[in-house]
Amino acid sequence: MSNTETTTTKNQRTERRRWNGTDLGLIAVFAALVAGAALVPGLALNGFGVPITFQTLAVMLTGLVLGPGRGLAAVGLYTLLGLAGLPIFSQGRSGLGILAGPSAGYIIAFPIAAGVVGWLAAIVINRITKARAVWFFLAATATSVVVVHTLGILGIALNSKATLEQAFLSDLIFYPGDIIKNILAAAIAVALHRAFPDVLVRRVRRQAATAGKA
């Protein structure tokens, strides 16, 4: 491959990685979705004041639909706006002070989880054609356990002076709801991918194929 061809290929790949107006619009829409999910009144049942909300459903759906980069950006935007002072965290909370509370680990985990489950969703889109809802559910559940619950437990332990065992036991109350929410997120994501295959994360497969030909 000549230097000119190499340069052209690099430019093409750079162009494919750029976000366009549609991407930015989707990031804004899904950031608003996560914020809207936080406005639904939650139930604080775990003993440390961390409420059960629909946020994890919105976070997982964002990653499953938008993929890793845009998913992380959307939930990261929501998180930054909340830390900046907009009352868009659960129970209308906002500001940096939330990082000193028991919910801190979950808040920090949300954008990371969106990126991780988005990465797993891209793998499913690229390699799996059958039972995608099942794989999306497994991806969301694994991400919930490894990222959201792990960081959530650490946040409770650090900010409430509880032991890791106490924090772990208090976190278990979230698992039944998370399973239901992950089922819903997987089902909705599959439906959205079918309805909008040219806009959502399915384009990763076409980009990979194009890159392979270059």
Rank of each mutant, 00 (worst) to 15 (best):
M1F: 12
N3V: 12
T4A: 14
T7E: 13
T8H: 08
K10Q: 13
T14G: 00
E15L: 12
E15W: 02
R16T: 00
R17M: 15
R18D: 01
W19Q: 07
N20A: 02
G21E: 04
G21Y: 03
D23W: 05
G25A: 10
I27W: 01
A28L: 09
F30V: 02
A31R: 05
L33G: 03
A35T: 03
A37G: 01
L39W: 10
G42E: 06
G42T: 06
G42P: 04
L43C: 00
G47F: 05
F48P: 01
G49C: 07
G49L: 06
P51V: 07
T56H: 10
T56M: 09
V59G: 00
M60W: 00
G63T: 07
L64Y: 03
L64A: 03
G67Q: 06
G69V: 10
R70C: 05
L72W: 11
A73V: 09
A74Q: 05
V75N: 10
L77R: 03
Y78P: 07
L80M: 14
P87Y: 04
F89Q: 05
S90M: 06
Q91R: 08
Q91Y: 04
G92E: 04
L99H: 11
L99W: 13
G101D: 07
G101Q: 12
P102I: 03
Y106W: 14
I107M: 12
F110S: 03
P111F: 08
P111S: 11
V116E: 10
L120G: 04
V124L: 06
V124E: 07
I125Q: 14
R132Q: 15
V134A: 15
F137R: 08
L138F: 13
L138S: 13
A140G: 15
T141A: 11
A142D: 02
S144F: 14
V148E: 07
V148L: 12
H149I: 10
L154P: 03
L158K: 11
K161Q: 15
L164G: 02
L164V: 14
E165W: 10
Y175L: 15
P176S: 09
P176T: 11
G177R: 07
G177C: 05
D178M: 07
N182D: 09
L184A: 15
A185E: 12
A185T: 07
A186G: 11
A187F: 12
A187H: 05
A187N: 04
A195I: 03
A195G: 12
A195P: 08
D198N: 13
L200D: 03
V201R: 01
R202P: 00
R205K: 15
R206M: 06
R206L: 13
A208N: 12
A209E: 15
T210C: 01
A211G: 00
G212Q: 13
A214H: 07
